[in-house]
Simulated assay, not measured.
Amino acid sequence: MLTDKLTQLQTIFKQMERALIAYSGGIDSTLVAKVAYDVLGDRALGVTAVSPSLLPEELEDAKIQAATIGISHELVNTHEMDNPNYTSNPVNRCYFCKSELHDTLKPLALKRGYPYVVDGLNADDLQDYRPGIQAAKERGARSPLVEVGITKLEVRQLSQGLGLPWWDKPAQPCLSSRFPYGEEITIEKLQRVGRAEIYLRNLGYHNLRVRSQGDTARIELAPEKIKEFVATTDLDKLVAKLQELGFIYVTLDLEGYRSGKLNQEIVGKNVANTLS
């Protein structure tokens, strides 16, 4: 029962007594922050990492959501872009990102008297290739949603049941996930992709990605939205806008958006991650 899982989640925080939440503003970490605050009150702290891979709009959402919940909220700067192991974009790029995140959060937590750093990893995340899980595990972070076995769908159901207005918010991983492995990541490229996605959101499309490969932008939309997009969008204006941002070619992925699509190129290789 979903109510039983919520009770188990609450029990975890009661046992922690104090917790620092790695709070991105996404639906998963926001649910964790909500439950942590409901249980711990001012003994829970949400901390958002700010870097070029986070859309400014996502940061503003995180601030608004934290204020709505009531949880104390702070920002810290992370510097993964200074690490060539990250910017060279290897298949384990996420490991170096999460290493930087937790190497920043863990000392902060200990300094402030929080014995636990908690993230928003959910049970479904274990089914995808996510090397960052290992980095968090190595640094002692806990993942209550995984510990209870809460899936992405259940995150949304619990969020809706708790009255969180963003329960159906689309997933929004860091902008670095828009680049094929092996293509160097730069601040300029991140900003280009981010502005392109904002432009498309302003057209009314929210569950989307703009994948970047060299000078090409590949737009991914929800499959059921593709025909509407082609029929109603001023394509010449769209192309001109994305070329203004720095792309040369603008394409539409006819398969549509699918989470983790860039990982399909490494399926079958000897990569794995677990929390066991």
Rank of each mutant, 00 (worst) to 15 (best):
L238V: 03
E197H: 05
E197I: 11
I27V: 00
Q127L: 13
D253K: 04
V76Y: 12
R201N: 12
L254D: 01
I12V: 09
A19S: 09
L254N: 01
T11Y: 12
R195G: 02
E147T: 09
H206G: 05
D168N: 15
Q65E: 08
G70N: 00
E228M: 04
Y116I: 00
E138D: 08
A222Y: 10
L162H: 05
T274G: 07
L275M: 13
A66E: 12
Y116H: 15
E255A: 14
R201H: 10
K137T: 02
L242M: 11
L235V: 09
L252T: 03
W167I: 00
E197Q: 09
G26C: 00
P56K: 09
S88N: 06
V267S: 15
E244K: 14
I71L: 00
H79W: 14
K5D: 07
T216N: 05
L126P: 00
T232Q: 14
L175W: 10
G260A: 02
S143M: 09
S143R: 12
N202Q: 15
I64H: 15
S143N: 13
G163K: 14
A49K: 03
E197N: 07
K269V: 00
K63H: 15
D234S: 10
K237E: 14
G120S: 11
K5E: 06
A272E: 04
T11L: 13
L126M: 05
L145I: 01
Y199H: 13
Y129P: 01
G46F: 12
T68Y: 12
W166I: 00
G161R: 07
S259N: 10
D128W: 04
E74A: 12
E224V: 10
I64N: 13
K237F: 08
R112L: 15
Y249T: 11
V91H: 13
T186Q: 09
I21N: 05
Q160I: 00
G41V: 02
F96S: 08
L59S: 08
R218C: 14
L252D: 03
L45M: 01
D236M: 13
S259F: 13
N263C: 12
